[in-house]
Structure formats: structure tokens, C-alpha cells
């Protein structure tokens, strides 16, 4: 019945199906008394029909409390289950394969860590946790992979992430679920899950000149970042080696973690958060760099996470 029930490509998807199945049983049980009794009463107590109508009750606190509380308590059980599954979905696995996603009217662009790029098709290995780091170049989009039972909005101005582990190799749908303008309904493509070997082979055939971090390093030089942040800089700017993932004290006294969002904002909205002890002289690059380039720079700075400023060439 391929037109009645969706295909599934992960254990998580099976779990969601099970949750829905169980919940459907509950809501059928909660509504069955209403449907059955309404029909029975309509027949039995039809006007003009003889029936025992003596001693009707029109108020009962006991009944009211039980039909308010019993369904609610049963629902709470499912609430716990569904929320637990949802929290699980939002846990980013530490060793995940990170793939960058940029949405723009009306296409999906993917960048693999090795620098391989693809449009409207996403290849991933099965059995490996994958985390998508997603940015939008214009309006809100939403990456929807029905076979995994997951979606996540892609919001301009902030990174969102989506983590999953696919379990079955195959080719599935990938769609945009948030209305994004004229060609919203054709902003989709394929989601291809492959065995790790096939994925490795695919990575080799997909053409690329540099890894994501290497491409970021090139941008770092060509856009003059190194002029301020590099070893021979004459201005007072913080070194970016060892920055990623560390706490950063800000001018106002606040301390934030230097995650991808922080680095993105440092490049595109430098005035919003000033590192303590430095002059606010960094210019914005909003007019020069698109979200894809910024993601490459983030990958580069992320690759320096374990480096120390002293080791600079």
C-alpha cells in the first residue's frame, strides 16, 4: 500500500510510527464512547418512542471529574514518551559527520566536509550519525525528509541543526516544507543513503579542489581576515586559533561560547558582540560573503580549534 503509508529509512522513523500507532489506539478509545452512545441514544430515546426516561440526572461532579482527569492522565503517558523522543532527536552526537546546508529560493545546496558540493540531492552513509548545519540565504525554508520522519526549519540569520542516523540504503524524497514563495513546491530532490563504502566511493568521484576548511583558509586570506587576525598583523585583533568551542568574555562582561553561530555573527554582524579588550574595528562582511562562504570560514576556524596561537607559521 505504497500510497497509504510512508516508507521509512531509520529506526527512529519506526519509533515515531509506533508512537503514532499507540496514540491512535488511545484517541479511538477516548472517542468511541461518544460515537457509540450518541448513536444508541439517538435511536433509543427518539422522540415518540417508548423508553424508560425516569430519573434523569443532569449534574454529576463525579462524572465530570472522571471524564476530565482520566483522559488527561492517559494523555500524559504519551506526552512523556513523545517528549523524550523529541529531546533525543535534538541531542547532537559528538562524533557526527557534519554536512553544511544552505537554502535559498528555490534550491538546496549541500557541502560535505571534504569540500564535495551538491544541489538538491544529499548523499549520506548509513549507520553513521549525521548532523546538518543549516543556513538560509533569504526566507525561511524547512528541510523535510519524510522517510526519516524529521524536518527542521532553516531560518535566515541563525544556524539550525538536524541530526539523524539513517539505517537503510536507498533513494528517498527530500522536500521544502515551509512556504517560501513562487517555486516552493518544486524546491525538493533526493535523499540518498548509501553503505559507508559506497559513500566513500561517491565522495571520491564527486569533484572537489579543496576541503571545506581549505576553502575557508583561502577565503581567510583573500578577504583580508589574515591582515588583522594573522601572525604579522599590526592591529590589535584576537587570534582565532583555539577559539572554537571556548568561552569568550565580551565587552559588556557577558561570557559566550564561540560556537558556529558566534563565529558567523562575528563575521556578518561584528558590532553585535565585541570581544573584551579589543577595539570594535572589524568591518562587516555581509555585503561580500554569502552563507556558503561564511560556512567555509566557520569550518576553517573550527579546524583551528586545537591549534595554539604560538604555533602559527
Amino acid at each position: 500500500m505504497s500510497w497509504l503509508w510512508p516508507v521509512d529509512a531509520s529506526a527512529y522513523a519506526d519509533h515515531v510510527d509506533l508512537l503514532l500507532g499507540g496514540f491512535t489506539v488511545l484517541i479511538v478509545a477516548l472517542s468511541a464512547p461518544v460515537f457509540i452512545l450518541m448513536a444508541v441514544f439517538a435511536v433509543k430515546y427518539r422522540r415518540g418512542r417508548v423508553a424508560d426516561r425516569r430519573h434523569p440526572v443532569d449534574n454529576s461532579v463525579g462524572l465530570e471529574t472522571s471524564w476530565a482527569l482520566i483522559p488527561f492522565i492517559l494523555l500524559l503517558g504519551f506526552y512523556v514518551w513523545a517528549t523524550w523522543l523529541f529531546v533525543d532527536l535534538h541531542r547532537t552526537p559528538a562524533d557526527a559527520l557534519e554536512i553544511d546546508v544552505v537554502a535559498k529560493q528555490w534550491m538546496w545546496k549541500f557541502q560535505h566536509p571534504g569540500g564535495q558540493r551538491e544541489i538538491n540531492t544529499l548523499h549520506v552513509p548509513v549507520g553513521t550519525p549525521v548532523t546538518l548545519r543549516m543556513a538560509s540565504q533569504d526566507v525561511i525554508h524547512s528541510l523535510f525528509i519524510p522517510a526519516l520522519r524529521i524536518k527542521q526549519d532553516v531560518v535566515p540569520g541563525r544556524y539550525t541543526t538536524l541530526s539523524f542516523t539513517a539505517d537503510r540504503p536507498g533513494t528517498w524524497h527530500l522536500a521544502c516544507a515551509e512556504f517560501c514563495g513562487v517555486d516552493h513546491s518544486v524546491m525538493g530532490g533526493s535523499f540518498v543513503t548509501m553503505t559507508p563504502d559506497d559513500y566513500a566511493a561517491w565522495l571520491r568521484t564527486a569533484d572537489t579542489d579543496a576541503t571545506l576548511a581549505e576553502a575557508g583558509a583561502a577565503l581567510f586570506r583573500s578577504h583580508g581576515c589574515s591582515g588583522c587576525h594573522g601572525p604579522s598583523a599590526t592591529v590589535h585583533a584576537p587570534p582565532l586559533e583555539g577559539l572554537y568551542g571556548r568561552p569568550v568574555p565580551l565587552e559588556g562582561g557577558e561570557v559566550v561560547t564561540a560556537d558556529a553561530q558566534y563565529i558567523r555573527d562575528s563575521i556578518l554582524l561584528p558590532r553585535s558582540q565585541i570581544a573584551a579588550g579589543y577595539p570594535p574595528i572589524m568591518p562587516t562582511f555581509a555585503n561580500q560573503l554569502g552563507e556558503e562562504d561564511v560556512l567555509r570560514l566557520v569550518a576553517y576556524i573550527q579546524s583551528l580549534a586545537d591549534a595554539r596561537p604560538e604555533d602559527r607559521p
Binding site: 452512545l37 450518541m38 441514544f41 439517538a42 430515546y45 427518539r46 422522540r47 415518540g48 423508553a51 424508560d52 426516561r53 425516569r54 434523569p56
Partner: peptide
């Protein structure tokens, strides 16, 4: 509806 005089 219980024990009513229901007109359809």
C-alpha cells in the same frame, strides 16, 4: 442525550 426526547 441520555433519557431525552430526541427529534432527528
Amino acid at each position: 442525550l441520555w433519557k431525552g426526547h430526541i427529534a432527528l
